[in-house]
Simulated assay, not measured.
Amino acid sequence: MSQKFVAEVFGTFILVFFGCGAAVLMGSEIGFHGIALAFGLSIVAAAYGLGTMSGAHLNPAVSLGFVLSGRMSTGDFVSYVIAQLIGATLGALVIMLIAQGQPDYTVAVNGLGQNGYGAGYNGGYNLAAALIFEFVATLVFVTVILGATQSDSPAGFAGLAIGLTLVAIHLVGINVTGVSVNPARSFGPAVFVGGKALADLWVFIVAPLAGGALAGILHGMGITRSNNAKPTGN
Protein backbone atom coordinates (compact mmCIF):
# COMPACT_ATOMS: atom_id res chain seq x y z
CA MET A 1 0.00 0.00 0.00
CA SER A 2 2.90 2.38 0.65
CA GLN A 3 3.95 2.19 -3.00
CA LYS A 4 0.39 2.91 -4.13
CA PHE A 5 0.14 5.82 -1.68
CA VAL A 6 3.33 7.43 -2.94
CA ALA A 7 2.29 6.87 -6.56
CA GLU A 8 -1.06 8.59 -5.95
CA VAL A 9 0.62 11.52 -4.19
CA PHE A 10 3.11 11.99 -7.02
CA GLY A 11 0.57 11.35 -9.78
CA THR A 12 -1.90 13.90 -8.42
CA PHE A 13 0.98 16.33 -7.99
CA ILE A 14 1.75 15.89 -11.70
CA LEU A 15 -1.88 16.54 -12.63
CA VAL A 16 -2.09 19.80 -10.67
CA PHE A 17 1.42 20.95 -11.54
CA PHE A 18 0.91 20.46 -15.29
CA GLY A 19 -2.71 21.54 -15.53
CA CYS A 20 -3.02 24.35 -13.01
CA GLY A 21 0.58 25.32 -13.65
CA ALA A 22 -0.20 25.86 -17.32
CA ALA A 23 -3.15 28.07 -16.35
CA VAL A 24 -1.17 30.18 -13.87
CA LEU A 25 2.22 30.43 -15.52
CA MET A 26 1.31 30.28 -19.22
CA GLY A 27 -2.43 30.91 -19.44
CA SER A 28 -2.18 34.22 -21.28
CA GLU A 29 0.15 32.67 -23.89
CA ILE A 30 -1.55 29.32 -24.54
CA GLY A 31 -5.21 30.09 -23.76
CA PHE A 32 -7.96 27.61 -22.92
CA HIS A 33 -6.90 25.17 -25.64
CA GLY A 34 -3.37 24.93 -24.28
CA ILE A 35 -4.59 24.49 -20.72
CA ALA A 36 -6.95 21.72 -21.83
CA LEU A 37 -4.05 19.94 -23.52
CA ALA A 38 -1.85 20.32 -20.43
CA PHE A 39 -4.45 18.63 -18.22
CA GLY A 40 -4.85 15.78 -20.70
CA LEU A 41 -1.12 15.27 -21.13
CA SER A 42 -0.66 15.20 -17.36
CA ILE A 43 -2.97 12.18 -17.22
CA VAL A 44 -1.07 10.46 -20.02
CA ALA A 45 2.23 11.06 -18.21
CA ALA A 46 0.94 9.81 -14.86
CA ALA A 47 -0.91 6.84 -16.34
CA TYR A 48 2.10 5.46 -18.20
CA GLY A 49 4.62 6.48 -15.55
CA LEU A 50 2.77 5.38 -12.42
CA GLY A 51 -0.22 3.34 -13.57
CA THR A 52 1.39 -0.01 -12.87
CA MET A 53 1.88 1.00 -9.22
CA SER A 54 -1.52 2.41 -8.25
CA GLY A 55 -3.65 2.52 -11.38
CA ALA A 56 -3.10 6.31 -11.43
CA HIS A 57 -6.54 7.30 -10.19
CA LEU A 58 -5.38 10.78 -9.09
CA ASN A 59 -8.99 11.63 -8.31
CA PRO A 60 -11.38 10.72 -5.45
CA ALA A 61 -14.28 10.51 -7.92
CA VAL A 62 -12.39 7.90 -9.94
CA SER A 63 -11.51 5.92 -6.83
CA LEU A 64 -15.15 6.05 -5.70
CA GLY A 65 -16.19 4.70 -9.09
CA PHE A 66 -13.78 1.80 -8.65
CA VAL A 67 -15.17 1.05 -5.18
CA LEU A 68 -18.80 1.04 -6.34
CA SER A 69 -17.96 -1.08 -9.39
CA GLY A 70 -16.44 -3.71 -7.12
CA ARG A 71 -12.87 -3.15 -8.24
CA MET A 72 -11.45 -1.51 -5.11
CA SER A 73 -11.77 -1.94 -1.35
CA THR A 74 -13.06 0.79 0.96
CA GLY A 75 -9.79 0.76 2.89
CA ASP A 76 -7.77 1.41 -0.24
CA PHE A 77 -10.23 4.16 -1.21
CA VAL A 78 -9.56 6.07 2.00
CA SER A 79 -5.79 5.80 1.54
CA TYR A 80 -6.04 6.88 -2.10
CA VAL A 81 -8.12 9.95 -1.27
CA ILE A 82 -5.69 11.07 1.44
CA ALA A 83 -2.79 10.63 -0.99
CA GLN A 84 -4.63 12.53 -3.73
CA LEU A 85 -5.39 15.47 -1.46
CA ILE A 86 -1.76 15.64 -0.36
CA GLY A 87 -0.50 15.48 -3.94
CA ALA A 88 -2.88 18.20 -5.13
CA THR A 89 -1.93 20.48 -2.23
CA LEU A 90 1.79 20.01 -2.91
CA GLY A 91 1.23 20.71 -6.60
CA ALA A 92 -0.59 23.97 -5.84
CA LEU A 93 2.09 24.97 -3.35
CA VAL A 94 4.91 24.51 -5.86
CA ILE A 95 2.99 26.50 -8.49
CA MET A 96 2.48 29.32 -5.99
CA LEU A 97 6.17 29.38 -5.05
CA ILE A 98 7.17 29.60 -8.71
CA ALA A 99 4.53 32.22 -9.55
CA GLN A 100 5.68 34.41 -6.66
CA GLY A 101 8.96 34.80 -8.53
CA GLN A 102 7.12 37.27 -10.78
CA PRO A 103 6.98 40.72 -9.15
CA ASP A 104 3.34 41.49 -9.97
CA TYR A 105 1.90 38.10 -8.95
CA THR A 106 -0.38 37.71 -5.94
CA VAL A 107 -2.46 34.69 -5.03
CA ALA A 108 -5.49 36.86 -4.26
CA VAL A 109 -5.48 38.50 -7.70
CA ASN A 110 -3.97 35.89 -10.03
CA GLY A 111 -5.07 32.73 -8.27
CA LEU A 112 -3.80 29.18 -8.72
CA GLY A 113 -6.05 27.84 -11.45
CA GLN A 114 -8.86 27.28 -8.96
CA ASN A 115 -12.33 26.18 -10.02
CA GLY A 116 -15.34 28.45 -9.70
CA TYR A 117 -18.56 29.72 -11.22
CA GLY A 118 -20.77 32.79 -11.30
CA ALA A 119 -20.10 36.46 -11.91
CA GLY A 120 -16.42 37.25 -12.40
CA TYR A 121 -15.37 33.68 -13.17
CA ASN A 122 -14.69 32.86 -16.85
CA GLY A 123 -18.09 32.75 -18.62
CA GLY A 124 -20.11 33.69 -15.55
CA TYR A 125 -22.21 30.51 -15.59
CA ASN A 126 -24.56 30.05 -12.63
CA LEU A 127 -24.58 27.39 -9.92
CA ALA A 128 -27.03 25.11 -11.72
CA ALA A 129 -24.85 25.08 -14.85
CA ALA A 130 -21.77 24.33 -12.76
CA LEU A 131 -23.42 21.42 -10.96
CA ILE A 132 -24.84 19.92 -14.16
CA PHE A 133 -21.57 20.21 -16.05
CA GLU A 134 -19.44 18.74 -13.27
CA PHE A 135 -21.84 15.84 -12.69
CA VAL A 136 -22.22 14.91 -16.35
CA ALA A 137 -18.54 15.42 -17.23
CA THR A 138 -17.39 13.28 -14.30
CA LEU A 139 -19.91 10.58 -15.19
CA VAL A 140 -18.47 10.46 -18.70
CA PHE A 141 -14.86 10.64 -17.49
CA VAL A 142 -15.13 7.85 -14.92
CA THR A 143 -17.15 5.68 -17.32
CA VAL A 144 -14.32 5.96 -19.86
CA ILE A 145 -11.71 5.17 -17.20
CA LEU A 146 -13.55 2.08 -15.97
CA GLY A 147 -14.09 0.88 -19.52
CA ALA A 148 -10.55 1.57 -20.69
CA THR A 149 -9.03 -0.27 -17.72
CA GLN A 150 -11.29 -3.34 -17.69
CA SER A 151 -9.65 -6.70 -18.23
CA ASP A 152 -10.55 -7.17 -21.90
CA SER A 153 -9.71 -3.66 -23.10
CA PRO A 154 -6.87 -3.25 -25.62
CA ALA A 155 -3.59 -3.29 -23.72
CA GLY A 156 -1.51 -0.13 -23.61
CA PHE A 157 -4.14 2.38 -24.73
CA ALA A 158 -5.91 3.25 -21.48
CA GLY A 159 -3.68 6.22 -20.61
CA LEU A 160 -4.10 7.77 -24.04
CA ALA A 161 -7.88 7.28 -24.07
CA ILE A 162 -8.28 8.76 -20.59
CA GLY A 163 -5.98 11.70 -21.30
CA LEU A 164 -7.75 12.59 -24.54
CA THR A 165 -11.11 12.35 -22.80
CA LEU A 166 -9.94 14.88 -20.21
CA VAL A 167 -8.81 17.20 -23.00
CA ALA A 168 -12.26 16.96 -24.61
CA ILE A 169 -13.99 17.63 -21.29
CA HIS A 170 -11.89 20.78 -20.83
CA LEU A 171 -12.69 21.96 -24.34
CA VAL A 172 -16.39 21.74 -23.45
CA GLY A 173 -16.41 23.11 -19.92
CA ILE A 174 -13.33 25.15 -19.09
CA ASN A 175 -15.34 28.36 -19.58
CA VAL A 176 -18.04 27.05 -17.22
CA THR A 177 -16.11 25.98 -14.11
CA GLY A 178 -12.47 25.74 -15.15
CA VAL A 179 -13.22 21.98 -15.10
CA SER A 180 -12.76 20.03 -11.92
CA VAL A 181 -14.22 16.51 -12.37
CA ASN A 182 -11.83 15.88 -9.47
CA PRO A 183 -12.30 17.01 -5.86
CA ALA A 184 -8.56 16.77 -5.16
CA ARG A 185 -7.66 18.99 -8.14
CA SER A 186 -10.07 21.60 -6.78
CA PHE A 187 -8.97 21.22 -3.16
CA GLY A 188 -5.26 21.95 -3.67
CA PRO A 189 -5.57 25.45 -5.20
CA ALA A 190 -8.56 26.41 -3.01
CA VAL A 191 -6.57 25.83 0.19
CA PHE A 192 -4.13 28.58 -0.74
CA VAL A 193 -6.47 30.95 -2.58
CA GLY A 194 -9.17 30.87 0.10
CA GLY A 195 -12.15 33.22 -0.14
CA LYS A 196 -14.60 32.39 -2.93
CA ALA A 197 -12.50 29.44 -4.13
CA LEU A 198 -12.88 27.81 -0.72
CA ALA A 199 -16.55 28.77 -0.44
CA ASP A 200 -17.28 27.23 -3.86
CA LEU A 201 -15.30 24.06 -3.15
CA TRP A 202 -18.38 22.05 -2.10
CA VAL A 203 -19.63 22.17 -5.70
CA PHE A 204 -16.45 20.50 -6.91
CA ILE A 205 -16.68 17.83 -4.25
CA VAL A 206 -20.37 16.96 -4.41
CA ALA A 207 -20.97 16.98 -8.19
CA PRO A 208 -17.84 14.99 -9.22
CA LEU A 209 -18.36 12.41 -6.47
CA ALA A 210 -21.99 11.97 -7.55
CA GLY A 211 -20.95 11.54 -11.17
CA GLY A 212 -18.18 9.10 -10.28
CA ALA A 213 -20.53 7.13 -8.03
CA LEU A 214 -23.13 6.71 -10.78
CA ALA A 215 -20.44 5.64 -13.25
CA GLY A 216 -19.22 3.02 -10.79
CA ILE A 217 -22.71 1.71 -10.10
CA LEU A 218 -23.53 1.41 -13.80
CA HIS A 219 -20.24 -0.34 -14.50
CA GLY A 220 -20.71 -2.69 -11.58
CA MET A 221 -24.18 -3.62 -12.86
CA GLY A 222 -22.67 -4.45 -16.25
CA ILE A 223 -24.53 -1.66 -18.05
CA THR A 224 -21.34 0.07 -19.20
CA ARG A 225 -19.04 -2.94 -19.01
CA SER A 226 -18.11 -5.43 -21.71
CA ASN A 227 -19.71 -8.83 -21.22
CA ASN A 228 -16.26 -10.39 -21.48
CA ALA A 229 -14.70 -8.23 -18.77
CA LYS A 230 -14.11 -9.50 -15.26
CA PRO A 231 -13.84 -7.27 -12.17
CA THR A 232 -10.22 -6.79 -11.24
CA GLY A 233 -8.69 -5.62 -7.99
CA ASN A 234 -6.57 -2.51 -7.88
Rank of each mutant, 00 (worst) to 15 (best):
M1D: 15
F5Y: 11
A7F: 13
E8A: 10
G11W: 07
T12L: 06
I14S: 10
G21E: 07
A22L: 05
A22P: 04
V24Q: 04
V24Y: 05
L25W: 06
L25N: 04
M26Q: 15
G27I: 06
I30K: 04
G31I: 06
G31H: 13
G34F: 02
G34N: 01
L37R: 01
G40M: 00
S42L: 03
S42R: 04
A45Y: 12
Y48A: 06
G49V: 02
T52H: 15
A56M: 01
A56C: 11
L58A: 04
N59I: 05
L64V: 02
G65I: 03
F66P: 01
V67Y: 04
L68G: 06
R71D: 02
M72E: 09
T74F: 15
T74H: 11
T74S: 14
G75H: 06
G75I: 03
F77W: 11
A83G: 05
G87V: 07
G87Y: 03
A88Q: 03
A92E: 09
A92R: 03
V94T: 12
Q100V: 06
Q100W: 12
Q102K: 15
Q102V: 15
Y105G: 07
G111C: 13
Q114E: 15
N115A: 04
G116A: 14
Y117F: 15
A119I: 15
Y121V: 13
N122K: 15
Y125R: 11
Y125I: 04
N126E: 07
L127E: 11
L131V: 13
I132L: 15
E134T: 03
T138M: 01
L139G: 02
V140S: 02
V144F: 09
G147E: 09
A148V: 02
A148S: 12
T149W: 00
T149L: 09
F157Q: 11
A158R: 06
A161S: 07
A161D: 00
A161T: 13
T165H: 07
A168N: 08
I169E: 02
H170Y: 05
V172Y: 09
I174Y: 10
N175H: 13
N175D: 11
G178H: 03
V179Y: 00
V179Q: 03
S186Y: 09
F187H: 00
A190M: 05
V191G: 05
K196W: 05
K196F: 06
A199S: 14
A199N: 14
W202Y: 13
V203A: 02
V206Q: 03
A207T: 13
P208C: 00
A210D: 09
G211R: 00
G211V: 04
A213L: 08
A213R: 10
A215R: 05
G216F: 03
G216P: 00
G216Q: 00
L218H: 13
M221Y: 12
T224E: 00
T224A: 07
R225E: 05
R225K: 12
T232Q: 15
N234H: 12
